[in-house]
Design a protein around this nucleic acid. Structure first.
Lengths: 192, 192
DNA sequence: TCAGTTCTTGACTTCAAGGTCAAGAATGGT
DNA sequence: ACCATTCTTGACCTTGAAGTCAAGAACTGA
């Protein structure tokens, strides 16, 4: 009952995610958000309560769309190392092709809000932990298939790969030529 | 001639660096800066011109103090791998021991301002390039001393180590236990 | 059709960010 | 002693960030 919403909150969150991703939390204004979403400020606050609450939803949206997509990409068929390389190359190309050079929203959020924003910090921690787990699982699969030496520690390699991705996506924000990222990917995959 | 300054601008920049490092560029207010420096707002703007100009000086100060210290640490005597391990462990311990979890100011700046702030972006690029060079030089030294296989590509390993450090310092901002960072360091040094 | 409810808009409010400026203080030169 | 110069302070200014609210629109059930 009552007047129905004239917009889809989930779509609005996606637009908000875009803005926060590009400009950061402090760098985004309510005006930016209503412009991007296409609603009035009243609707914005009536629906989401506060800038911070909307940011939290945007971060969760990022997790559900982007972070999960990464993990799913690792699950495709084929040899483990090839999948890994393809995923890393895909991330690097994607980041470099983005005209806004937004990189990874989780990485950006960690850099901006870790320590000062409990909620955001925990969400980022969860995304990182899941990514690390996915890499560890991939390593274990590679060990079962004989592609990766069984004496290597999967947890260590999982952490290493998480660290590699975090570094790559940060470096992608300030690196113009893809050479450096390609070298990182080559050296990383080659070390497995 | 004229009234002499009541404060040392270089010391003021160091204090400003502390604040920007902890709160980011957008998150820092002129009030934060005058409080940290201990001068009036007029002196602040009379001396530095703008918040952005002061940030630029703070970033250069970071480069001259922190980034250069890293590079010098790599130049100490001893076996190459031991030096590298010690440096990485030192960074990780330092970042985890910091109650504010500020991580690396260059990394934070890349995440916040890459793409939107030309000056800051270039300064960060320069810091990253110098660090990468120092790592490459270290690898080459290790190859001359026989510690590192001569067929490895020093440029690739330099990029890899830069990427590792960037990742470590970002992860240090959201990682509570040191285990993950230790695993990353072990796996990285072990792969050389 | 009317009552109750929920949504929408945008003007409005409050507060602070970023910066300016006038008044006066501390110097050196003459 | 006085002047030009530079520095210092804090009140002041303008703008915009973040959020609120009154008025009205669109819906549902009775």
């Amino acid at each position: 009952m009552g007047r129905p919403k004239q917009f889809d909150p989930d779509v609005a969150v996606e637009h908000a995610m875009d803005v926060f991703w590009r400009k950061g939390y402090a760098g985004t204004t309510p005006q930016d958000l209503v412009d991007a979403i296409g609603i009035g400020k009243g609707s914005l606050y009536n629906t989401f309560g506060s800038k911070h609450a909307l940011f939290e939803r945007a971060l969760r949206c990022y997790h559900d769309s982007q972070a999960v997509a990464l993990i799913e990409m690792l699950d495709e068929p084929g040899p483990v190392k090839a999948r890994l390389r393809k995923t890393l190359e895909f991330l690097a190309e994607m980041d470099l092709a983005d005209p806004d050079r937004r990189g990874c929203m989780a990485v950006n959020t960690a850099a901006e809000l870790a320590g000062t924003d409990q909620v955001a910090t925990e969400l980022v921690q969860r995304m990182f932990a899941r990514t690390e787990d996915a890499f560890r699982a991939l390593i274990e699969e590679g060990q079962r298939s004989g592609e990766i030496a069984p004496e290597r520690d999967p947890a260590a390699l999982g952490s290493l790969l998480l660290n590699t991705v975090v570094g790559l996506r940060l470096l992608a924000r300030v690196t113009e030529s893809p050479d450096r990222l390609v070298r990182v990917i080559d050296a990383t995959v080659g070390s497995l």
